[in-house]
Write a protein that binds this DNA or RNA. Structure first.
Length: 425
RNA sequence: CGGGCCGUGGUGUAACGGCUAACAUGCCUGUUUUGGGUACAGGUGACUCCGGGUUCGAAUCCCGGCGGCCCGACCA
């Protein structure tokens, strides 16, 4: 893609009032636009990052044998009355709206009810189980205080996976598989080093749930981390009983601020029972389906990356989620790329050729073809944070070399065309 | 929801109760420059968040809204 196609412009100054790093950088670089507090639009660059994250999540979900669907955002109050989650006393984050013809609707903050109700049409026998179903969809939560850029919004993207089983054993088994899938997801995304499985409060059905917490000063949670065991305990369940059950001692734990990027939860029959999702066993007995739910926040993950993988010049995207692989920056006058190719300057011609070759080899390249000064283009490249910057300039061409700069390390390599193509392939 | 700070051209800021609301940046024209936001000249752009009030006079003071950020509470 050519940068002249992008409508988003970078900003020189931090947006007014914003303190959080993710809001400052993502807005300055033109990845997101704040519509209202806690409500953000994703511009082309930001959307590409989000889609990269979603693709990684999808691959791991599919590997679990899960299938994707998309449920509705509008929710039927009757279902939530059955599970006692419609009343404002029980759930205070509802966005509720109404029909012109009378009657209320809710904007989904989660989808246990909807998917459980749906499955009643498709599950009636032990032969129909187990099932794993997920979606990546917008959730609405009427937070009393949206904060920290895209880390805590009122409208945000969420991946929610639900699993359905004949027994607790089968749920436990699947639950552990999801745990592994989540670890691989954070590894692939580039947050593996700083993300920890954390014991958190469980609910009626199980003693603990598991959170995936990424260490960050921008986080809202306090966890107690054992680096050696790669394990943490959320402050909410930190007590002697928990520690002895997990075989941890207070001495080995250090207190850290972190942000919850994922949460997996055993639901048991909390939803299947009140909503009536039952299956028949081999002997004709009727039992409520045993369920689990597994959440992941792609938008929040993007925000966390912006928080912890950035420097004073701008964003620094991990390769797997970067909006592009290579930022091809053309320096020098006459960078016009359109028109008769034979009439182009040598720099422009070279740039176009290498762009085409890289693109043909499967690389995603953002080509800065804008007619701006060198300093401006380089500063923008730093701000956007694409992993590799390939500089094409008159002086470099005279030397017969391409300059490749690693955004994260600042390391510079001078390569011939053959070396360059070989390297990125 | 309690508390604090704040609301001025597209963006970031300034302005004692008193001149035509200033500066930077952006944008437009021209010349210039082309490896770190180049320089110069000219130009464009604001009912100072909304509604009331005080005053001869309000961006400025007072009241009420609305909105933003932060701290706390909350977070299926």
């Amino acid at each position: 893609m050519f940068q002249s196609q992008l409508f988003s412009k970078t900003r020189r100054e931090d947006p007014k009032g914003e303190v959080s790093q993710n809001a400052k950088l993502l807005i300055r670089a033109g990845f997101i636009h704040k519509e209202m507090a806690g409500v953000y639009s994703y511009l082309p660059l930001g959307l590409r990052v989000l889609n990269k994250i979603n693709d990684i999540i999808r691959k791991e979900m599919d590997a679990l044998g899960a299938v994707e669907l998309e449920l509705t955002a509008l929710q039927n109050p009757l279902l939530y009355e059955k599970t006692d989650r419609w009343s404002g006393d029980k759930v205070d984050i509802w966005f509720k709206t109404e029909l012109q013809t009378g009657g209320e609707l809710g904007l989904g903050f989660t989808h246990e009810e909807a998917i459980t109700e749906l499955l009643k049409n498709h599950v009636s026998s032990y032969k129909d189980l187990p099932r794993a179903i997920y979606q990546i969809q917008t959730k609405f939560r009427n937070e009393t205080r949206a904060k920290s850029g895209i880390l805590r919004g009122r409208e945000f993207l969420m991946k929610d996976l639900y699993s359905f089983h004949v027994s607790e054993e089968d749920l436990d088994n699947f639950y552990d598989k999801v745990k592994g899938a989540y670890e691989r997801i954070f590894e692939r995304i580039g947050l593996g080093d700083s993300t920890y499985i954390t014991f958190a409060s469980g609910g009626v059905f199980s003693k603990y749930s598991h959170e995936f917490q990424t260490l960050s000063e921008a986080g809202e949670d306090l966890i107690y981390l054992s680096e050696g065991k790669k394990l943490a305990v959320n402050k909410e369940v930190l007590n002697d009983e928990t520690l002895s059950e997990l075989g941890l001692s207070r001495e080995e734990l250090s207190e850290k601020k972190s942000i919850e990027v994922g949460n997996i939860f055993k639901l048991g029959t909390r939803f299947s029972q009140p909503l009536g999702l039952y299956f028949k066993d081999e002997k004709g007995g009727s039992w409520p389906v045993v369920m689990g739910c597994y959440g992941l926040g792609p938008a929040r993950i993007m925000g966390v990356i912006a928080e912890i993988k950035s420097d004073n010049k701008g964003l620094v995207w991990p390769r797997a989620v970067a909006p592009f692989d290579i930022h091809l920056v053309i320096l020098g006058k006459e960078v016009e790329l359109s028109g008769d190719r034979e009439a182009l300057t040598e720099t422009a011609k070279t740039a176009l050729e290498i762009y085409e070759e890289l693109t043909a080899s499967g690389k995603e390249v953002l080509c800065d073809d804008r007619d701006l000064s060198a300093g401006e283009k380089l500063a923008d490249a730093d701000l956007l944070g694409i992993p590799f910057r390939l500089v094409i300039s008159d002086s470099a061409i005279k030397k017969g070399k391409f300059e490749l700069v690693d955004r994260a390390t600042g390391e510079i390599e001078y390569l011939s065309e053959a070396e360059l193509l070989n390297k990125v392939r």
